[in-house]
Design a protein around this nucleic acid. Sequence first.
DNA 1: TCTGGGGTCCTAGGACCC
DNA 2: TCTGGGGTCCTAGGACCC
Length: 466
Amino acid sequence: MDGIVSWPGEESSITSRPARRLRTSPSVLHADVDAFYAAVEQRDKPSLRGHPVIVGGLGPRGVVATASYEARRYGVRSAMSMVEARARCPQAAFLAPRFAVYRAVSAQIMDIFAEFSALVEPLSLDEAYLDIATSAHEPISTEAAVEIARRIKEKVRAVTGLSISVGAGNSKLVAKIASDLDKPDGLRVVPAGAEADFLAPLPVTRIPGVGPATAARLHNVGVHTIGELAALSEEEAANLLGRAHGRHLWALAHGWDDRAVCADRAAKSVSVEDTFDQDIADPGRLRIVVRAMAERVVERLRAHTLSGRTISVKVRLTDFTTLTRSATLPAPTDDVRVVRRLAERLLTEVDTSSGVRLIGVGISGLTDWVQLNLFADDRGGRPTGGAGEVSTGTPGTASPMHTDPPASAVPWTPGQDVVHRRYGPGWVQGSGRGWVTVRFETRDTPVGPVRSFRDADPELHPAESP
DNA sequence: TCTGGGGTCCTAGGACCC
DNA sequence: TCTGGGGTCCTAGGACCC
């Protein structure tokens, strides 16, 4: 294993903080493909080589996903509007992204990374951390790290035709910054012990996690370099930037970064969103759109055999203010009818009369098992739907790869319109284990209470079909 | 003709429970 | 009747990353 040393300054930190250990050799690698999408397009279309290429949305509200280095010379950057990119570099080739191709190339690259380390943490299609200490019994020398990086670059170029940049250091932070500094086709290893001198003169904005808002706060107090951030006290950083964020960045500025390289990180949410070519104000059209997005997100959810408890709707208004509304179910679902209906309701909680430029639907609180009925959680108790409440307070701690028997002979279908003799019209949010939960809302009165009944409640009936 | 789409993490307030 | 604190869950928003 890599050599390990105690976290400097540990004595002064709060006792709840776990003991930190820093590596003593450059055994963390960060690798990413140079101008990935654009480079794939240039690779596949030789006439584009040597010329500016801009990949991104081609619609009226598109933005740049990736600009080739030729295009960057004209000031074209990721996230810039396509309109501005066209103004800066009209002679560029403007291409829509081909994600299926990028995913395939990405898989090739990740396979190559896996040949060099058993511990690969992908960050995106074109980027990953590699822990090269896992298979080594001795600390990794600078020369050994350089050699491994060189071989990875060679192999990626031979197999995919793409150039990558690799950085290595004793932490994720140092490796990542090192790979950034030498782009494109970079190879930079920060030797053990040289981390502080490497970091100190760099602008704070080099630290991943320091964006425009954080940079502005730091600049306000005269902090421009990583070394100047490190020279603050931990308390000053925490007060300036927030407790967690401030302390984290302050530690990073010292090079105190013990974050582990972690393969197989489970997804926490799934979402889809669309920006319209023109704003939509018509509630009927918005309702149709949000239903379609609910269907798309459930498709993605089910493709990964996941279920989720919390449904969110995101609305970006004409003036770009962004609102979210969410609701949490008593148990995870992957039922399109429930998600569709809930998304529709959440949309009604936002005033969209001024016009909407984007709608999104997301699902979080994911569990790794296929939902068979809404109450197939392990709380054991009966459903408790109280008036107006969606969540019951107790989270379903789902067992992995749960295999519940199907809820057979239950007459109620999630999403179904029903009428209760006392409570009026509503729709079935879920059923199972002898119970059915009804949300008493209609399109005209979209927000209403939730109540649960026995399956055979004589007062509950399917709504008349239209 | 301003500002995509997919995510992650953090904060802060209120509800609720012990 | 009054007075609390801690912990967890939920919601909404914001910063940030590629």
